[in-house]
Amino acid sequence: MRSLRDTSLALLALLAADPTAAAEGEQIYVKACAMCHNAMPPKLGDKKAWEPRLQQGKEALVATVIKGKGAMPPKAGNPALSEKDIEAAVDYMLNQVK
Rank of each mutant, 00 (worst) to 15 (best):
M1S: 13
R2Q: 15
R2Y: 08
S3F: 13
L4C: 03
L4E: 15
L4A: 15
R5M: 04
A10D: 08
A10S: 06
A13D: 14
L15W: 04
A16F: 05
A17N: 08
A17S: 12
D18L: 05
P19G: 07
T20G: 04
T20E: 11
A21I: 01
A21Q: 13
A23G: 09
I28D: 05
I28G: 10
Y29W: 00
V30T: 10
A32D: 15
C33R: 07
C33I: 04
M35V: 09
C36Y: 11
H37Y: 14
N38C: 03
N38Q: 10
A39P: 08
M40Q: 10
M40S: 12
P41R: 06
K43C: 05
K43L: 12
G45N: 08
D46M: 09
D46A: 12
D46P: 04
K47G: 01
K48D: 11
K48E: 08
A49R: 11
W50K: 06
E51G: 04
R53H: 07
R53S: 03
Q56L: 12
G57W: 07
A60D: 15
A60L: 12
A63L: 00
V65F: 01
V65R: 02
I66V: 15
K67E: 13
G68P: 02
G68N: 03
G70Y: 07
G70F: 06
A71H: 06
A71G: 00
A71Y: 03
P73G: 04
P74G: 11
K75A: 01
A76Y: 07
A76Q: 10
N78A: 15
P79N: 12
E83T: 06
E83K: 05
I86R: 02
I86W: 06
V90Y: 02
Y92P: 05
Y92D: 04
M93H: 05
Q96I: 01
V97E: 09
K98V: 01
